[in-house]
Nucleic acid binder design. Structure first.
Lengths: 168, 168
DNA sequence: GTTTTATGTCAGTGTTGTTGACTTTCCAAG
DNA sequence: CTTGGAAAGTCAACAACACTGACATAAAAC
């Protein structure tokens, strides 16, 4: 959009390959920490990360369709279906035929599903809260800004849409 | 951007579950973007993310031992060995018997390995550079701070050690 | 000389992703 | 009303990458 001449003064960014590499490694190690707690919990119940992701986004947008979920998660329907099947079988997720369009399935968490989602969510939020606390408010703002800029444009669209739907 | 809970005073953080959830989702989507470019390149050559990680850390610390690499990557030796075997067979990595301790193997990139590492590294750095540019210098600082706080303590140790080894 | 460490290997298993082919259901346009 | 195509689900096969467990070898450490 705006030109590449960085805003004058302190806006000038001198980015050495070394600094960028630090960012890359920080991202790698942080993501490991980020998923560590939920992974432990999931393991307890015999589920994996894919189940967590499904639970998360169904919890976030109850009644979402399978197709919508597919585009958010960015996997094939076969891959998602395998996960959904077990979640439905285990009565964590309910699949309701659409009223307007009966081909669509709307997905909801059952009470049991909501309990697990909460357990996972609490653990991950606690980690995030701790990190935010250590880093301070300005750092949090910067964190979010950089992450958003790192997303693929269409994923950013998903993210932004959800951001609007629940006032930030 | 509109802060719902104005941070009263200065260091006090009011963190709603919603704000934390945004952070969690941002992390999820950003990581996808973060790995997208290298994944495409790796796919071209028939390698995967595990190969990328090995190449990265061998490039970062030439002569590192297998055991050291294991503790950085946090996988089993069987898992790492499968990756290293193909990299050595394809002459991207060289394994030299240790001089001081002949049980150890020291790992180095060959010229060919360095070329691929560069290709991967350049793509990922370009993404990171772009994100940093869009976000601005203060955001970059915050980004790094939060990520560091999110790591597991022992991973943070690895990260910090590497940070020192090449002055940040 | 026994034990421990570092590395490598074989075999089996599980999760999560992929393609490709096929069916059923159902909306909507001709 | 027929038909084209979208949405959803299923089956089969396969690959990447993680895991466990067992075992082998060489060399350092005690």
């Amino acid at each position: 959009m705006s030109d590449r001449q960085p805003p004058s003064g302190q806006g000038l960014l001198f980015l050495t390959d070394e600094q960028l590499r630090k960012g890359i490694e920080a991202m790698f190690f942080a993501y490991r920490g980020f998923t560590a707690d939920p992974d432990r919990i999931l393991n307890k119940y015999g589920y994996g990360r894919a189940h967590h992701r499904a639970l998360h986004f169904i919890s976030r947008a109850p009644g979402t369709t399978v197709n919508n979920l597919l585009s958010i998660l960015g996997v094939t329907k076969q891959s998602l279906n395998r996960v959904l099947r077990t979640l439905i079988k285990d009565e964590l997720v309910e699949s309701r035929v659409g009223t307007r369009d009966k081909r669509e399935r709307h997905l909801f968490l059952t009470d049991k599903g909501a309990v697990l989602e909460q357990e996972l969510s609490n653990a991950q939020r606690e980690r995030m809260r701790q990190a935010y606390r250590e880093a301070g408010p300005e750092a949090v703002q910067g964190f979010r800004t950089v992450l958003e800029a790192m997303m693929d444009p269409d994923l950013q669209r998903h993210f932004t849409r959800m951001k609007e739907s629940a006032n930030d």
